[in-house]
Simulated scan of single mutants.
Amino acid sequence: MHNRPDIALFDTEQKTCMLIEFTIPADDNIAKAYTEKITKYGDLAFQLRELYNLRTISILPMIISVNGLVETHLLENTKRLRLEPDVISASQKQVILYTTRIVRKFLQGF
């Protein structure tokens, strides 16, 4: 219920699907966030597999912490999406810059 991944990529010729979910947790919650995403979308993956008669369906959590730490499966998931490895460092940079913006806004409020 209420499961809607950020991106769903369907390959109708190969009969596959990749559910991609992005999250930016606190450093201490990286492993927990990965487990939650896999668990949360498991039922949806099963339903989509049955509904569209898919051969395979994958859940790919893309997780970088607020301080730029990378979850262990991120490189593997990036390769499965056929993305260049430098997309990870570019994503880390964007996450860190946004985190600093949030902190700066908060501190200006005082």
Rank of each mutant, 00 (worst) to 15 (best):
H2L: 07
H2T: 12
N3V: 09
R4W: 06
R4N: 08
P5Y: 03
D6L: 12
D6W: 02
D6N: 12
I7S: 07
L9I: 13
L9C: 11
L9K: 13
T12C: 08
T12V: 11
Q14H: 08
K15F: 04
K15G: 03
K15T: 04
T16S: 08
C17W: 01
M18K: 15
L19F: 04
L19H: 02
L19P: 02
L19M: 08
I20K: 02
E21N: 09
F22E: 00
F22T: 03
F22C: 12
F22I: 00
F22H: 06
T23W: 10
I24A: 06
P25F: 02
A26D: 09
A26S: 14
D27P: 06
D28W: 00
D28C: 06
N29C: 04
N29D: 15
N29A: 11
N29G: 00
N29E: 15
I30G: 00
K32A: 08
A33W: 02
Y34A: 08
T35E: 13
E36P: 01
K37L: 10
I38F: 03
I38E: 12
I38T: 09
K40R: 08
K40T: 10
Y41H: 14
Y41K: 05
Y41C: 05
Y41W: 00
Y41T: 11
G42H: 08
D43G: 06
D43V: 11
D43N: 12
D43W: 03
F46W: 12
F46E: 12
Q47S: 13
Q47F: 14
L48D: 04
R49T: 09
R49I: 05
E50R: 14
E50D: 15
L51P: 01
L51Y: 07
Y52K: 13
Y52F: 15
L54I: 06
R55M: 09
R55I: 07
S58K: 15
S58T: 10
L60W: 10
L60Y: 13
M62I: 14
M62A: 01
I63K: 03
I63H: 03
I64S: 02
V66I: 09
V66L: 13
N67T: 14
N67K: 10
N67L: 12
L69C: 04
L69Y: 06
V70F: 00
V70Y: 01
V70N: 02
T72A: 09
T72P: 10
L75V: 04
T78Y: 02
T78N: 09
T78E: 01
K79S: 12
K79G: 07
R80L: 13
R80V: 03
R80E: 15
R82L: 09
R82W: 05
L83V: 05
E84W: 02
E84D: 14
P85S: 08
D86V: 11
V87D: 01
I88N: 13
I88T: 06
I88W: 01
A90N: 06
A90V: 08
A90Q: 14
S91T: 15
S91R: 10
S91Y: 15
Q92T: 07
Q92V: 15
Q92F: 07
Q92L: 04
K93S: 14
K93R: 14
Q94T: 13
Q94E: 11
V95W: 00
I96A: 01
Y98W: 11
Y98I: 02
T100P: 05
T100Q: 11
R101Q: 15
R101C: 11
R101Y: 08
R101V: 12
R101L: 14
I102R: 13
R104P: 00
F106S: 12
F110L: 14
F110A: 04
